[in-house]
Structures are given as C-alpha cells and as structure tokens.
Design a protein around this nucleic acid. Structure first.
Lengths: 123, 123
DNA sequence: TCAACTATACAAGAATTGTTGAAATATACA
DNA sequence: TGTATATTTCAACAATTCTTGTATAGTTGA
C-alpha cells in the first residue's frame, strides 16, 4: 500500500459525517445503500452526502455500482484490513515477539499475520 | 469507543507527517523514541514534530513518558485494534455470515470472527 | 417527448489546519 | 550559579476543508 492511499483513507474517516457513512455501509454489508438512503438515514442534504461519498470513493474506502438512476455504495472492508497491515507491517521486522504479542491479542490467536493480499477496486 | 475518539485517531493519521511518526514508533515497538530522534529521523523542525505529537497524544494514538529532559514516545497499538473493532462491531449484528466471509478472507482463515474484545486504554 | 426524480458538479463564504520563527520552560552538568 | 540542551508554547500567515445554495446531467415511465 502506498502512503498516499493510507492518508486518504484516514482523512476519509476523520470526519464525523464520513465515519457515520462508513459505519452505516459496514452495517449493511454486501447489500449496500443508495445515496438517497444514506442522506435520509443521517438526515443530511443529499449534495453534502454526495460530496463526502466522492472523497470516500476516491480513497477506495467505498465502492459504487450504478443501478438505473440510483447509485449503490458499499463499504470496502478488505481495504481496511490492508490498511492495518500497512500500519504494522514493519513492526515485526525489528521486534517480532512484541508485535505478535500485541496483534494476536484480538484477531489471529495463532497465525503470525500473513502479508495481506492486495485487493483491486474499480476507482 | 466513542465516535470522537475514532475521528481524532483518524485525523491524526490523515497527515503524512503524523503517519510517518506513527509508523516509525510502531517500528520501534516498546523501545519508543524521544522527540529529537523523531525529528532527526524524519528531517523535520522539532517544533513541527512537537505540534503533531501533541495532537497524536491527545488522540491517544501515542503515549509519552518523561526521561530526564527527554520525552519518549510510544505507539499505542491496542488502541488501533480497538478502533478496528469499533468500525466493524455492528457489521456482524445484521449479517454475520457476510462479515465473516469478508473478514476471514484476509486475517483469520478459519476463525469465524468472534466479537472483537473491547480493549481498555488509558485515555 | 415531457415531467419527475436521483445524483453530481460548481461556486462562495466561513472555519479549520499546517508551517515557520521566536520565545519560554525545564533538565543536565560543570 | 551559569550555560547548554531538549522540548514545548505562542503568534501569524498560507493553505486547505466544510457547508450551503444553485445549476446541471442522467434515468424513468407515461
């Protein structure tokens, strides 16, 4: 993962509105939501939501699929995991035992974190 | 985790400089680094690094310990894992099977993703 | 084709953030 | 005590971001 990708993703989630959008989409999972639904659910002006969705899409945090006149958005969960790997990938280089201790705590009890796969998104 | 905590952490990592600082500290693990070392390593003015470290500390992303006239900073990795849990905690509520599918893809090949543990940090 | 609907694009103002230089605080050591 | 070092704080300017209103593009169905 490139540094710019990481900062874009983090910037996307640094806004309360975008964080709400992302968590809403995560909650919906594969079903996703159309733009209007998101705006209604969060009680925000559609153009404002569209503004934020554009940035999130550009960052790869969400993907969009056209459905007639609707645009359906989905959360890109694999990217999030890829991001975590990026943040901690060099940790194990210097002190594997410390990192393993911390990281296996909450996710992979026995696995020593394989390098996460690069996942393609249409952006 | 509260929403504000999450947005503060993400905002902390949305800057290239702060991301560099964080990854540097992750790389160092428990050893950490003093402020001057960080500034030298990244070739940045000390007051600028101090500015960014202040925000990161406030967000809980890094912790600081005084060592004589030095201040040693450490990355707070458990908070990062707590953050991931926050992002995905409601995913499994609605559609457990979808989330498991997505998440096990890149992290826990055989585990069906137990609800991620809430990790306490001093914030 | 026309009208209604969904969504995005654009522009302007307010608000926030980032960087730099100078000054201040605190510790270490002779 | 006095000086050097490490780090932070403060002020000011440049740059960016957020929100809102208006306009535009594309889709649907009669």
């Amino acid at each position: 993962m490139e540094k710019q990708t990481a900062t874009q993703v983090f910037e996307s989630l640094s806004s309360g509105i975008r964080l709400d959008i992302y968590r809403l989409l995560v909650k919906r999972g594969l079903e996703g939501m159309v733009a209007g639904q998101i705006a209604s659910a969060l009680d925000l002006p559609p153009n404002n939501v569209s503004f934020h969705l554009k940035g999130m899409t550009h960052a790869g945090l969400v993907s969009v699929a056209q459905e007639g006149r609707y645009q359906r958005y989905h959360a890109n969960l694999p990217l999030m995991l890829e991001l975590i790997a990026y943040l901690t990938e060099e940790c194990c280089a210097g002190h594997p035992e410390q990192c393993a201790e911390i990281r296996t705590d909450s996710c992979c009890p026995e696995a020593v974190l394989p390098p996460l796969p690069k996942i393609e998104t249409e952006s």
